[in-house]
Amino acid sequence: MIHITINGKVVQAKDGEMLLTVIRREQIDIPTLCHHEAVEPSGACRLCMVEITKPSWDGWCDYVTSCLYPAEDGLIVNTHAPKVNELRSSILDMFLARHPKSPEIRQLAAEYGVMKTQFEEVVDGDNCILCGICTRICDTMGFKAISMVGRGHGKEVAPPLNMAPAACVGCLSCAKNCPTNYIEYNMKNGGLTIWKKDFEMIACTECGATTITKEFAEYLSVNRDIPFDYFEKCDACHRKELAGTMGRIANWDREARS
């Protein structure tokens, strides 16, 4: 265990654990748009930057992304230094210019006092902030179905060759974890469409409810050694089944005793 000072308060941290983790544990609110615990930090949005210094640094400060900076003993962190606050509102201003219609961005920008962008709004801008959470999750899960395409200002998230991605199983993790809810999908009539690819949902053999796609279940069954029939019932019917089984045993017991 090491000790660091965050906003004047001395707190304990594990050596090498990222500053953001420590800051969040202390219930201090700093914004992030590209951070997800399931994947390696990338330091893309720059909103989590904090001011750091040490007594030995002679008054000199550094500004680092807390999601990527490992805690060191004796570090003094200021999560809301004036320069940091100014940087955050500037970045949110940039985001707002790029994605003026995104409710999530507008709300976060408003929290930092940016109600209207001072920059030139991007015409026909979409709501993708290029945080890469979707692609990184897809990589971590092992599908690697979608990726960042192009570079710079024209970069976008897309399936390879802009065609229905063969490697996608329709797990929806990309869409569900998108901080601006940009990734669209359509679920109806027992089917699912995402990234222009159509999937069939497994319907519960008892009640017809759907949970995941057939492709996803097959993937898990083959790669994770889970019997495929586990996926054939929904969770509610599985519970009912378990209640039935345990009930029968309890009833035998009861009858045997009486």
């Binding site: 990338s42 330091g43 893309a44 949005c45 720059r46 940087l87 500037s90 970045i91 940039m94 985001f95 210019a97 790029r98 920059f119 030139e120 902030i129 290029l130 890469g132 960042m148 192009g150 570079r151 710079g152 200002h153 024209g154 970069k155």
Partner: peptide, 22 residues
């Protein structure tokens, strides 16, 4: 620079773009 920015981090990708616009 706007052409060559990799597009990963916001200040470079969006900030330089806005500088260029000005």
């Amino acid at each position: 620079l706007v052409e060559e920015s990799c597009g990963k981090c916001t200040p470079c990708c969006e900030g330089l773009y806005q500088l260029l616009k000005i």
